[in-house]
Simulated scan of single mutants.
Amino acid sequence: MTFKPHPAVAPAMPMAVRGTATLAMIPAARLPRSVPHRDGRKMPTVRLLAMAAVWLTVVGAGTLAPMSDSAAQASAPAAAPRDFAAERKAIGDSRAWTNYRFATAERACYDKFFVTHCIDKAKEIQRGELQVLRQRELEVGEAERAQRAADRDREQALRRAEYEAGQPKRSANEQASRESFEKKQQEQQLRDAQHQADAPKRSANAQSHQQKQADYDARMREAQSKGAEQARQREENVKAYEAKQREAEQRQKDQDERRAKAKEQQGQASAPRPFGF
């Protein structure tokens, strides 16, 4: 995996590492055993590739020496948050690449005379690279925990600032609530005092109401008694009237009978007698 470090923070690539990308494109079976160094010495190809992988991993992941405050301010206006998942993936890819190159070097060692010595050197290079990657992995984990802690601290600081900013309003609301409660308490005390002061008046009013109720009940009983007496009197008057009516009808009937009888007698007296008597 090829990393592209930021030009403002990435150190210069060592001369021994330059050209490693070209070597990585050559099949393992055709790689030269060594490449010439600038001082005339020859460096094993496996070691050169290992140095390049470690350099790219360290620089690409961002494990550089800390800069001064002035350099940090001049480098960028605001640092972007680290992508720890991408860094872990890069470390994993580098570890896989290290293991692949060790397997390739191990196979190449079997073509040499000192096989064991060659494999031991390849293992030493692998252990060095894996150790660097392990340290890098530990640093990423520590940095992630530190960032989470910093995020929690910022969140707590933000909540604390919001709480402190709202404190005057809460204090004003609490003061208003206390004043309202005290005012209601005073009004209740005034009502209680007024209620106690009006107790004799309420007692007199109750007695007067009871007296009025008693008078009303007495008048009601008297009215009911008078009503009953008047109803009885009306019933007697009706009975007397009906009796008089029956007497008048009887007198009229008797009178009609007497008149009819008298008329009958008068008719018999005026009728002619056959014998003259």
Rank of each mutant, 00 (worst) to 15 (best):
Gln266Glu: 10
Ala8Trp: 15
Arg273Asn: 06
Ala50His: 08
Val46Thr: 11
Trp97Ile: 01
His6Trp: 12
Tyr216Ser: 08
Arg145Met: 08
Arg82Trp: 01
Val35His: 04
Asp192Tyr: 12
Ser68Gln: 00
Ala76His: 00
Pro81Asp: 13
Ala243Gln: 09
Pro66His: 05
Pro27Ile: 04
Pro200Ile: 03
Gly40Phe: 11
Glu236Asp: 08
Arg259Tyr: 02
Arg219Ile: 14
Pro11Glu: 04
Arg18Lys: 12
Met1Asn: 10
Arg33Leu: 11
Ala161Asp: 00
Phe275Ile: 15
Gly40Pro: 03
Ser177Ala: 12
Leu64Trp: 06
Ala79His: 07
Gly62Ser: 11
Arg82Tyr: 00
Gly141Lys: 04
Val46Glu: 02
Val54Arg: 10
Met15Phe: 01
Arg101Lys: 09
Ala50Asn: 02
Trp97Leu: 12
Phe275Leu: 10
Glu162Pro: 05
Arg101Asp: 10
Ser75Lys: 08
Arg148Trp: 15
Arg154Gln: 04
Pro36His: 10
Glu247Leu: 10
Arg191Ser: 14
Val35Asp: 09
Gln156Thr: 15
Arg82Ile: 10
Asp198Ser: 10
Glu182His: 06
Met43Ser: 01
Val54His: 09
Pro81Gln: 07
Glu124Ser: 15
Leu48Ser: 01
Lys4Leu: 07
Gly227Gln: 07
Gln207Leu: 13
Val58His: 00
Glu264Ile: 00
Glu257Gly: 02
Gln213Asn: 08
Thr98Ile: 12
Ala53Trp: 04
Pro66Met: 10
Ala150Arg: 02
His37Val: 09
Gly128Lys: 03
Thr104Phe: 14
Val54Ala: 14
Val59Arg: 09
Pro36Cys: 02
Gln233Pro: 14
Gln211Asp: 05
Arg154Lys: 11
Arg41Phe: 06
Ala248Trp: 01
Ala206Trp: 09
Phe102Gly: 06
Glu236Thr: 11
Val59Phe: 02
Cys109Met: 04
Arg219Leu: 15
Met15Ala: 10
Asp215Arg: 03
Ala262Pro: 08
Arg152Gly: 15
Ala72Ile: 14
Ala228Pro: 01
Pro200Phe: 06
Gln250Asp: 05
Pro32Leu: 00
Glu129Ile: 13
Ile119Val: 12
Lys261Asn: 13
Asp254Met: 03
Leu64Thr: 10
Asp254Cys: 03
Lys183Gly: 14
Phe84Val: 03
Ala74Pro: 07
Lys212Tyr: 01
Arg191Gln: 14
Gln196Lys: 14
Glu139Ala: 01
Ala165Ile: 09
Ile26Glu: 01
Gln266Thr: 05
Gln185Ile: 15
Ser180Asp: 13
Thr98Ala: 06
Ala72Cys: 13
Asp215Met: 05
Ala271Leu: 07
Gln230Phe: 10
Phe277Leu: 04
Arg234Tyr: 00
Ala76Gln: 03
Ser68His: 04
Gln224His: 06
Arg136Lys: 06
Asp217Met: 14
Arg246Ile: 05
Lys184Phe: 00
Ala193Asp: 08
Asp93Cys: 05
Val46Ser: 08
Ala50Tyr: 12
Glu164Pro: 02
His195Asp: 15
Gln268Asp: 04
Gln252Gly: 03
Ala204Phe: 04
Gly128Tyr: 06
Asp217Asn: 05
Gly227Tyr: 11
Ala65His: 02
Lys239Leu: 12
His209Gln: 04
Leu64Cys: 13
Thr22Pro: 06
Arg219Glu: 13
Gln189Asp: 13
Gln126Ala: 05
His37Glu: 13
